[in-house]
Amino acid sequence: MTDDIWGETDDIHNREWTKMDDGFTNAGYREGITAGKENSLQEGFDEGFAIVGAPLGQEIGKLRGITSACLSLSKSIQEHSVMMDCKDILRGLDNLHFKDLAPSDVEAEEHLKEHLQSQDDTQNIPALLEIRDEEKHKLAVETLKELRNRLQDVLRQIGLPITVV
């Protein structure tokens, strides 16, 4: 008799306990996740800006600026083949996309995989973040290298001592 009564009470205790645990833990989790995100967003931004965005942007921009100036010069000195080359290089640079050029964010991709495995947000996950297309990345890096070489040729032809390779 007594055993049964205690057993039942234990069950209730456990259920209540678990309910309370879940309820408060989840509430804490929700508040924590918001606070954590707010607190680190700027830090991430500054990191991405300084380590990846700015240097890569400067690199590409500079190539375009140099090519642009070469194009103007080639027009004024009537160098048609150089002119066509410059236009071609500019077009090539236009077709390069930052997404393909940038190094992948390893931490982001790993975390995305964790989400995919735990399946807690499966509907949303594919839209949240793409894992970079390695093929596209390789191609973009390859193309950039090629464009650099071509620009170097142009600079040599015009006789400018600028090094871009």
């Binding site: 967003l41 830090e43 991430g44 931004f45 991405g48 964010d105 973040l129």
Partner: peptide, 8 residues
């Protein structure tokens, strides 16, 4: 972690 990823 999410803030860092998104910020980056």
């Amino acid at each position: 972690l999410h803030g860092l990823i998104e910020g980056r």
